[in-house]
């Protein structure tokens, strides 16, 4: 404990704890409690919700559509976020490090724009991009009417979309992290003539390992809960892009079944926990090797 008494530490943490306790933990547990009831937003079950125990969980776990959506979600999360956003985000941060100021600002602004626009708007951009009849991609390929990308290759389209959508965060985080790598270390690596790969592995990675882990955990969690795919494909065609949040929407929200969606929330939470443990293990293995 360096220079910060226990009482001061508590005082520093207290505001966060109060805010999180009241506005996050409390409603979150309430939501999970709703997961063991048959509560609905409207209808007779809204008037007198009953505790139905694990019925909702049984419903979720016996629904084949749930497992399909889970599989799609895992692909979506791992390919687009854990690999795609991570690699591209780091690549951009690394490549732009030495670029000219104006170029750097321009590219960062573009990447950032993809991230700041609200989903409802971003969906339009990508529909205009991938449209069968007048889409930019088909225009560049010189075909009209061309491929209905979102109908014929829905998951691929969603993965590319999400890389575009979310890379900004990884880029920003890695830029900030890279600025904490002492320039003198990089200079030394250059002087002794190590290759870029060697420099990355021996000098940069040890400094940003924790950031990389944090980043991966966060973007995994966020991608898992991202509803934007619904706006692009509505889960279609024929459920082929029904990732978890879309599944929740289609099965629970359309019918106003809050209990069911509360239960799915917990299941999704547990899967995220599992993923986090896998990442942690991988990170530990990476460090010890």
């Amino acid at each position: 404990m360096v220079g910060l008494g226990r009482s001061r530490a508590v005082a520093f943490v207290a505001p966060a704890l109060v805010l999180i306790g009241v506005f996050l933990v409390f409603p979150a547990f309430w939501t999970l409690y709703i997961g063991v009831t048959n509560y609905r937003l409207t209808g007779a079950a809204a008037k007198a919700p009953e505790v139905v125990g694990l019925d909702n969980y049984r419903g979720v776990l016996s629904d084949p559509a749930f497992y399909r959506s889970l599989w799609l979600t895992l692909i979506y999360v791992l390919v687009s976020a854990a690999v795609g956003q991570n690699v591209l985000g780091f690549g951009l941060a690394w490549a732009l490090r030495g670029a000219r100021r104006a170029i750097r600002r321009l590219i960062e602004s573009l990447v950032l724009l993809a991230w700041v626009l609200p989903s409802s708007v971003v969906a339009f951009l990508w529909i205009a991009m991938l449209d069968r009849d007048a889409g930019t991609v088909n225009m560049l390929l010189g075909q009209s009417p061309g491929t209905a990308w979102l109908v014929q290759y829905p998951m691929t389209a969603l993965v590319v979309f999400n890389i575009w959508r979310g890379t900004a965060f990884s880029m920003m985080l890695y830029s900030a992290a890279l600025s904490s790598v002492p320039p003198s270390h990089l200079e030394t690596a250059r002087v002794v003539g190590s290759s870029t790969m060697q420099t990355l592995r021996d000098v940069v990675l040890p400094h940003i390992r924790r950031h990389a882990l944090t980043n991966t955990l966060l973007i995994t969690l966020w991608t898992f809960n991202d509803f934007t795919p619904f706006l692009l494909t509505a889960g279609g065609p024929d459920h082929r892009s029904e990732v978890a949040p879309v599944y929740i929407y289609n099965t629970a929200i359309v019918g106003g079944d809050m209990g069911y969606s509360g239960a799915v929330s917990l299941v999704v939470l547990l899967i995220n926990l599992l993923l986090a443990l896998v990442y942690l293990r991988a990170a530990r293995a990476g460090r010890s090797s």
Binding site: R40, T42, G43, A44, A46, K47, G256
Partner: peptide, 11 residues
Amino acid sequence: IWLGEFADAGY
């Protein structure tokens, strides 16, 4: 179309 649900809920 919401009328029935709202009435059943006592809203």
